[in-house]
């Protein structure tokens, strides 16, 4: 099983393999079809932001394993201009491009964890994680068994 997938992003055409690779890795890691689609949708928004706002960058998608759970982490980085007011940019409807400002808040809702590191000198890195729902269920079941 592959554990790390890199997708360079420099034009809107690169979103097509980025979505497909994200979906494929999610399925390999045992995510449901629905979760794989949520992940692919978040990837699409974040990769598009790289193309539109920073021109080029890279996605690194990695399967991670912790003692009780599996997850998929996506790190999207670019060396673009950074996001001046990150707190407002994360709110729905805030855009610098007369767009709708849906991308960042939408991607955040689709994932379990979402962090943005941004700096005018270094660019922007979005790190987002989704945990496999099955592990959460199994943990709940195990807890119930312990109590019974």
């Amino acid at each position: 099983m592959r554990h790390e997938v890199r997708v360079p992003i420099s034009s809107d055409a690169d979103l097509v393999p980025a979505r497909a690779e994200g979906r494929a890795l999610a399925r390999e890691l045992g995510f449901s079809q629905t979760d794989a689609t949520l992940i692919a949708t978040a990837i699409s928004e974040i990769a598009r932001n790289i193309v539109v706002h920073a021109r080029s960058g890279e996605l690194v998608m990695t399967g991670i394993q912790q003692p009780h759970r599996y997850g998929l982490v996506i790190v999207a980085s670019d060396a673009g201009p950074g996001i001046p007011e990150i707190d407002t940019a994360l709110e729905r409807g805030h855009t610098s491009r007369r767009s709708l400002g849906l991308g960042l808040p939408g991607a955040r809702r689709l994932m379990d964890e979402f962090e943005v590191e941004t700096d005018a000198a270094k660019g922007t890195t979005v790190t987002m994680t989704k945990w496999r729902a099955r592990d959460e269920l199994e943990r709940l079941r195990a807890r119930r068994r312990e109590r019974a």
Partner: peptide, 14 residues
Amino acid sequence: IEPDVAIAMVQFDL
């Protein structure tokens, strides 16, 4: 619009 895509659209709040 497949069911999983519809779920993603709702969660996205589109």
